[in-house]
Amino acid sequence: MNGAEFVPLSLTPLLIGCLAAIACALPGNFLLLRRQALIGDAISHVVLPGIVAAFLIGGTIATLPMLLGAAGAAIVAVAMIEGIRRYGRIEPGAAMGVTFTTLFAAGVLLLEMSDTSGVHLDVEHALYGNLESLVWLDATGWGSLVDPTALAGLPPELFRIALVLVMIAALLVAFWRPLAISTFDEGFAATLGLPVTAIGLGLVIVSALAAVAAFDAVGSIIVIAMFICPPAAARLMTNRLGTQVALSVGFALIAAILGFVLAGYGPRWFGSIHAVSAAGMIATMSGVILALAALFGPARARST
């Protein structure tokens, strides 16, 4: 394939897919180890009303309001889950299920009732994402990567996801130790003076930011695969936390690249002229990687 075709049509969606997959896999490691994978699912749904609300208030789809809206929605969701658990006297899993379906449904209704025709926001997009549409039409080939006018036409989603990924990576490096200690042993962490509640909430908020950034790429349903599958596969490959996180990034990348390529070109190999959803294929590849790790990973045999 030549650059004149690849750069404008495939480079930016591929990059956005890769960055989104990594941004989700990083916090996903800790959600998984805290046995809070379901929180990832809840959060990825809950960001929808957050994004729509941010749009209704701000009138545009800009990065900062979207991130704030999603972080706000995450906090509301955590408060709701805790409130329902405590006052409704039901188990945490059920409280989470009630919260995220309700908030997601509210987001869908809000979206249907508001006029979003001027922007790229609709129910289908919210559900499945729209990775293929994030093209760079100003590009003419590889040369455009050094052409300022062409670079100015890069899709804003690319900057959003890059910004979020840098933020998440920086937070992870800065708070690695407290996060690891409080994930392993929260009571002990508290006696070290670590703010364990804030760390837990911080992880949820970071996950919400990742979910927003991935929203353009894969929507809010398939994103759970990006939170959970690469870390879960990585956990089966190693017994070291650092290695697990590094491997999860690798698996996320492989899933994003393979998924994107297979979605675009795979059907042709079988004689079909239609491409399939890149988001769907990325999630499928994430699942395939997890299945392979579950079958062949060296760290499968464990005490529990």
């Binding site: 690891a180 042993d185 017994n239």
Partner: peptide, 28 residues
């Protein structure tokens, strides 16, 4: 804490757990 209060499946080595006790000295 009680031994059963944590997940011993956590992906760390023995020495990593002991070094957690040095957190106040080491910091972030």
């Amino acid at each position: 804490p009680q031994r059963a209060s944590v997940d011993w499946d956590f992906p760390v080595r023995v020495i990593d757990v002991v070094q957690m006790g040095l957190y106040r000295e080491i910091g972030l």
